[in-house]
């Protein structure tokens, strides 16, 4: 698999505080990588390191296979756009002037595509209105437009829906999906709003206390969070045979427990097992939501 970003044992320490602690993660090309973690988990610190705003204490990362210690990393960064924490915009400029300024910073020879960019983020009709008079959602979209100047193929968005109203959240979500699907832009999006991320992400990285707890694809996560019946029996081999005969999908958890990914006829299943001298100890519906999965990963007692 091709990766846009790879980090290896990346650490960032501030005096006695470890913001990142040997963090290793992989962002696949073409993905929307949901970077999940509670406030203070280290999401923004990682983004700042990748953007070159801060230097790692130890470890390294590769952006498009270029190491952060290589001077060519500056060239790699030109291929990415980022909105770190708050949108980086000049408040006393219009949306158009902000984009023009970014075009100049990038050294683009003309302002071609500027209008299309404004249209893409829905700010084409803001005219002479200055950014200081924009709503939070408009500023966020302008920040994304600035990050998109120069056609980057990797976009980093740090908590892009924080503080937005429901309409703003929908607009940003649709914009991210559009950028990923139509413009083939890889997106790294950090958030602590799991429900919102689940509507976007194709891959996940769960972070806590500066460490990646687990990386997985959306498909893997879906499997983990799938609804199932958890059955505990006295003989797991008999249960397995019976479930095979009934053509039910299942997964053995331990020598007494299995998860059945269907809604079987409980009476029929119990009777069949009883005939085979296999006693049913308990059956309950097992439904792990994304949130409960995340809490089980980070440890519920520490979760704020």
């Amino acid at each position: 698999m091709d990766y846009v970003l790879k980090t290896t044992n990346l650490s960032k320490h501030y005096k006695n505080f470890k913001a990142l602690d040997n963090l290793t993660m992989h962002v696949p090309k073409g993905s929307i990588y949901g970077f999940v973690g509670r406030n203070g988990a280290g999401k923004t610190t990682l983004i700042r390191l990748i953007c070159g705003l801060q230097s790692p204490t130890s470890g390294d990362y590769e952006l498009y296979d270029i190491s952060n210690t290589d001077k060519a990393i500056a060239g790699s960064r030109r291929r990415m756009g980022a909105v770190v924490e708050t949108p980086s915009i000049y408040l006393d400029m219009t949306a158009k002037d902000n984009l023009k300024q970014q075009y100049r910073i990038l050294g683009l020879p003309s302002f071609d595509g500027l209008q299309e960019l404004l249209k893409l983020v829905g700010l084409e009709n803001t005219g002479k209105k200055k950014a200081k008079n924009f709503s939070l959602g408009m500023r966020q979209r302008l920040g994304i437009a600035i990050a998109l100047c120069g056609n980057p193929d990797f976009l980093i968005l740090d908590e892009p829906i924080n503080g937005l109203d429901p309409q703003g959240i929908i607009e940003i979500r649709e914009l991210i999906l559009k950028l990923n699907r139509e413009h083939k832009i890889t997106v790294l999006i950090s958030s602590h709003i799991l429900d919102e991320l689940s509507k976007l992400a194709t891959h996940y990285g769960f972070i806590d206390n500066g460490r990646i707890l687990r990386e997985m694809s959306a498909q893997e996560l879906e499997e983990v969070c799938r609804k199932c019946m958890r059955i505990t029996v006295t003989n797991i081999r008999t249960l397995s045979r019976v479930l095979d005969e009934m053509e039910l999908e299942y997964k053995i958890i331990d020598d007494r427990t299995a998860d059945i990914y269907a809604k079987p006829n409980i009476t029929r299943l119990s009777l069949t097992l009883a005939k085979e001298d296999c006693e049913v100890i308990s059956i309950d519906e097992h439904d792990e939501s994304l949130e409960s999965f995340y809490i089980s990963l980070v440890g519920g007692d520490r979760h704020e």
Partner: peptide, 18 residues
């Protein structure tokens, strides 16, 4: 100071300017 308060210094550094 505007570059810091508006965060626009980030735009310059992220885009490869040292």
């Amino acid at each position: 100071g505007e570059d810091y308060t508006c965060g626009t210094i980030r735009n310059k550094l992220i885009n490869g300017h040292t």
